[in-house]
């Protein structure tokens, strides 16, 4: 499965599109009727109160979780997902972590570039266990840069990052977007992205999720007799 190099993806077709998507968590339908299209260079910011379903939506878009209804279509060589946890192995050093992910994605040439993008070069031989939360987060984001995949799905990317790191991340994201990539972020703070479109999520009022089959009452006669 070759990675669609970003510049190759033609400007017109969408990198990721969702039609009539509805997602559920623990049998309860959180969002329904979510539709959007992501073109190269687009950034979509998901906003909404805690627990409205931002993470669940991102996980459904990432394919970690099947949608209850609607479809998600992703371009070839698709997406990279950055969840709350940074996928960092504490026992390994910073470069070992990135070398591993580079090898998995078949792009080992970019490790120094990724390190530089998130200003981690001076930490390259430190064991990840000794990094601060902010540095670990930057290492997680460096992995995203490394994947070379057009669509980034980021869940609260800037949590535990200080001012400087947020700016660092914003520039890395900006570079990704200008190179024809796209991103969907669930975040509360403004990243200063000029053309970011916002998607405000509201709880769905549709009946319960996959447990629908159990939604309706039963009129049974038997147990009434002797239970």
């Amino acid at each position: 499965m070759t990675d669609a190099s970003m510049t190759g993806a033609s400007m017109s077709d969408a990198l990721l599109s969702a039609q009539g998507l509805s997602v559920a968590r623990g049998g309860v339908r959180l969002l329904s009727g979510v539709s959007f299209e992501l073109r190269p260079g687009d950034a979509l910011v998901l906003r909404g109160p805690n627990g409205v379903g931002k993470t669940t939506l991102l996980r459904t878009l990432a394919g970690l979780q099947p949608p209850v209804a609607g479809t998600v279509t992703v371009c070839e060589g698709g997406l990279a997902y950055g969840g709350h946890a940074d996928a960092v192995k504490s026992a390994l050093t910073v470069t070992e972590n990135l070398d591993f992910w580079a090898a998995v994605h078949g792009r080992s040439v970019d490790v120094p570039a990724a390190l530089a993008a998130l200003d981690l070069t001076h930490l390259r031989d430190r064991r990840a266990a000794t990094l601060s939360a902010g540095q670990r987060r930057r290492l997680g984001l460096a992995r995203m840069v490394l994947t070379g995949r057009p669509v980034w799905l980021l869940d609260e990317p800037t949590v535990s990052l200080d001012k400087g790191s947020v700016a660092l991340f914003a520039t890395a994201l900006g570079a990704h977007l200008t190179a024809g990539g796209a991103a969907i972020l669930a975040t509360h703070i403004d990243l200063g992205l000029p053309d970011a479109t916002c998607l405000d999520l509201a709880p769905s009022d549709a009946p319960t999720g996959p447990g629908d089959a159990f939604g309706d009452a039963f009129d049974d006669t038997f147990d009434g007799a002797f239970l």
Binding site: G27, F214, G215
Partner: peptide, 8 residues
């Protein structure tokens, strides 16, 4: 059904 109703 009970857990579905409680969740709802």
């Amino acid at each position: 059904r009970l857990s579905a109703l409680v969740a709802r």
